[in-house]
Amino acid sequence: MKKLTIQLLIGLLLITSGFSKKLYADNTNKTSKELSVKQQNIIPIAAYTAVGELEKLKPALNDGLDTGLTINEIKEAIVHLYAYCGFPRSIRGLQTFMEVLDERKAKGIIDETGAEASPVNDNRTKYERGKANLEALIGRPLDGPQRGYAAFAPVIEIFLKEHLFADLFDRDILTYAERELVTVSVLASIGRVEPMLRSHLAICLNLGYTPEQLNEFTGIIKTTIGKKAAKNAQAVLNEVLENRE
């Protein structure tokens, strides 16, 4: 009986290890008081793209490449943010990135392309995968009847689960934590979406970002987008931290 129990435990660990590795792949800085250089560079790239500040985006893209972000990681960040600020901003960001890469290539700079997204080997429906991904992000099951906007317009809830949280989050070029950093950078920059920013800052904490790191995030928003955006983001963050205590 004891041998069988051990075998069952090993089986469960094997089943869940792949998902846990994916979810917490860069969740190694829980005790750090600072964002990594890579994380620091994701923020201005996402922020400038979101508000259409393309001339400011160019040096941010150069900084990102110079400090270790791969071409595919930056592309993925710019693609991901369309879900929060629209295709026009995302596409203009990608076009600007193409210009930067051409300029760097003309100077003889060879940048690392990076990994492509791995194939998704999962027999569940996209809705089921998206629901499971979202549950992992928020740290609780999503049971019971739909409420709020999801009950008012059920189709958007389906789109969110199947596309955003399945199609996009299943792409492992960026980790969940990196995708959430892109998300809060966009939401803090475009403004007037406090409920969404509140939810995603809470997710950042669930994924292992520390309060110190999120305070650093609002500081970077201040130096990129400005004092007003940073003040609003800080107020939302303070509320999230107070409610978490």
Score class of each variant (00 low, 15 high):
Asp172Phe: 07
Thr67Lys: 14
Leu13Cys: 07
Leu101His: 05
Asn206Asp: 01
Tyr48Leu: 12
Leu12Phe: 14
Thr31Ile: 07
Leu35Glu: 08
Lys30Arg: 13
Leu101Phe: 13
Pro211His: 06
Thr223Pro: 02
Gly144Asn: 04
Leu9Gln: 09
Val155Met: 11
Arg147Glu: 14
Arg129Thr: 00
Leu160Phe: 08
Lys107His: 01
Ile138Glu: 00
Asp172Glu: 03
Ile138Asn: 01
Leu237Asn: 08
Glu194Ser: 13
Ala229Trp: 04
Thr96Asp: 05
Gly108Lys: 07
Gly191Glu: 11
Thr218Glu: 02
Thr175Ser: 15
Glu194Pro: 11
Asp111Val: 11
Glu112Lys: 13
Leu23Ser: 02
Ile221Cys: 10
Lys22His: 11
Asp143Gln: 14
Cys85Leu: 10
Met1Phe: 15
Asn72Pro: 03
Leu23Arg: 12
Thr67Leu: 03
Thr210Tyr: 06
Glu76Asn: 02
Leu65Thr: 12
Lys107Leu: 07
Val186Gly: 06
Asn243Trp: 00
Pro141Arg: 01
Met196Arg: 04
Tyr176Arg: 03
Glu128Met: 05
Val182Phe: 10
Asn41Ala: 06
Tyr149Phe: 13
Leu54Thr: 00
Val51Trp: 10
Ala25Ser: 15
Asn238Ile: 09
Ala106Pro: 02
Glu178Gly: 00
Arg198His: 14
Thr28His: 15
Leu197Ile: 09
Asn41Asp: 13
Glu216Ser: 09
Gln40Ala: 11
Lys3Leu: 14
Lys231Ile: 09
Ile173His: 02
Asp122His: 05
Pro154Glu: 06
Asn238Ala: 14
Leu65His: 10
Glu112Val: 15
Ala60Pro: 03
Thr49Gln: 05
Glu212Asn: 12
Thr113Ala: 12
Glu55Cys: 05
Gly108Thr: 08
Val155Tyr: 15
Arg179Phe: 14
Leu134Ile: 01
Leu81Glu: 13
Asn41Ser: 07
Glu103Asp: 14
Lys75Asp: 00
Lys227Arg: 14
Leu205Pro: 01
Leu164Gly: 03
Ala136Ser: 12
Gln213Cys: 10
Asn72Cys: 01
Thr183Trp: 06
Ile42Met: 12
His80Trp: 08
Thr96Glu: 12
Asp143Pro: 00
Ile156Ala: 02
Leu168Thr: 07
Thr16Pro: 00
Val100Ser: 12
Ala60Leu: 01
Ile74Ala: 04
Asn29Cys: 01
Val182Ala: 11
Ile138Pro: 00
Gly114Arg: 05
Glu194Val: 09
Phe87Arg: 02
Gly108Gln: 10
Thr224Asp: 08
Ala151His: 08
Ala106Ser: 11
Leu54His: 05
Glu135Asn: 02
Ala150Gln: 13
His163Pro: 03
Leu12Asp: 07
Met98Lys: 14
Ile6Met: 10
Leu160Gln: 12
Leu197Met: 11
Thr175Ala: 13
Leu181Ser: 11
Leu35Gly: 05
Pro154His: 10
Val236Cys: 07
Leu201Gln: 03
Gly11Met: 11
Glu103Gly: 02
Lys3Asp: 15
Glu239Asp: 15
Lys33Tyr: 01
Leu201Lys: 05
Asp143Ile: 08
Ile10Phe: 11
Gly130Glu: 12
Leu164Met: 04
Thr125Pro: 02
Glu112Phe: 03
Ala115His: 05
Lys107Gly: 00
